[in-house]
Nucleic acid binder design. Sequence first.
DNA 1: AATATTATACTCAGTCCTGACTATTTGTCA
DNA 2: TGACAAATAGTCAGGACTGAGTATAATATT
Lengths: 176, 176
Amino acid sequence: MVPLYILGLLKRYGPQHGYRIKKTIADMLSDFTHIKLPTIYYHLSKMAADGLLSAISEKPGARPEKTVYSLTDKGAAACRRLLSELLAAEYRPAFDNDAIFYFAEHFRPAELAAYLQSYAGKLGPMLDIINAHREETLRHVPDDAKPMVHILFRHHELHFQAELAWARDALRMLQK
Amino acid sequence: MVPLYILGLLKRYGPQHGYRIKKTIADMLSDFTHIKLPTIYYHLSKMAADGLLSAISEKPGARPEKTVYSLTDKGAAACRRLLSELLAAEYRPAFDNDAIFYFAEHFRPAELAAYLQSYAGKLGPMLDIINAHREETLRHVPDDAKPMVHILFRHHELHFQAELAWARDALRMLQK
DNA sequence: AATATTATACTCAGTCCTGACTATTTGTCA
DNA sequence: TGACAAATAGTCAGGACTGAGTATAATATT
């Protein structure tokens, strides 16, 4: 995913350096991906070495050099290829907290119930945050992009709701 | 997650070597985690070096050595600690296919619709497979473990349903 | 009885990821 | 104007993950 996000952002917003890409991701995509700054620099170097990006070092008036990366034709092709590969990908989730129940013998039933209770209690507020982010994003996006914003946030909303429904279901199953 | 699964399985089923742990995970946990064999060996070595496991090389009649790992007291403590850390973890999903819609400018609307249609078409059969696995698992598990099996599979069922609901919603949003 | 296939058991090199760190520049508030 | 915080720009060492490979044993097939 990291290379795709980098290539896509360079395509959309033009030549940039690593820190600006990180900032875009942190500002606009924090709900959708959790890429860290050194990961971005890693892939920028790698893709430059592979010829997907061209790197130009700038030395503006003040000293520290920055490296500005821009998309090559090969990079644009790689972006298209990565996107089309996604179309064939399957949904195959894995949830860390499943281990709690797979190893349920390590807990007393009351501990499991307390966990689910507190977990469910956190999910409601998280849903509110998601929806606040959606409103915020809609305010900063051109009209023709709004349907996509809705689709993206709806995706997360539905899975947060599923997680909440699960916590409540599980609580009921434990008490039965 | 990998160390926790290894420690938990060693605790429950006693001393084992890497291949058997992998087999248990592949046979019983394939819906819940996707750990590969070299990853298991990596963590076995590491945890042995850290004193969480003790390793004993066996040379049974036939030649090839196997290394049997068993839990030390320190390993049992680590298992408890990892499990209790999970109780505090938050739900923070990321979906690869979100990139399709974040970079929707690369697709024609009809391509996006075709993707969602085919994606939704795959999710139904996957749900059936999940539920078949649940039945199969219930048949091989003692009565007192059955509620946990239901909780685990319900978790995945709900998220597959959420994914399906999203695909259909998104299709509607595109057509509007 | 010879051969093929599958299961068992493990290793290695290469890739990816990130916490912790360095260093400069630009506010900003007293 | 001096000093402290925040933003900008990046590096590095170390840990985690896995595709591809090695090698033997057991089982099936012909």
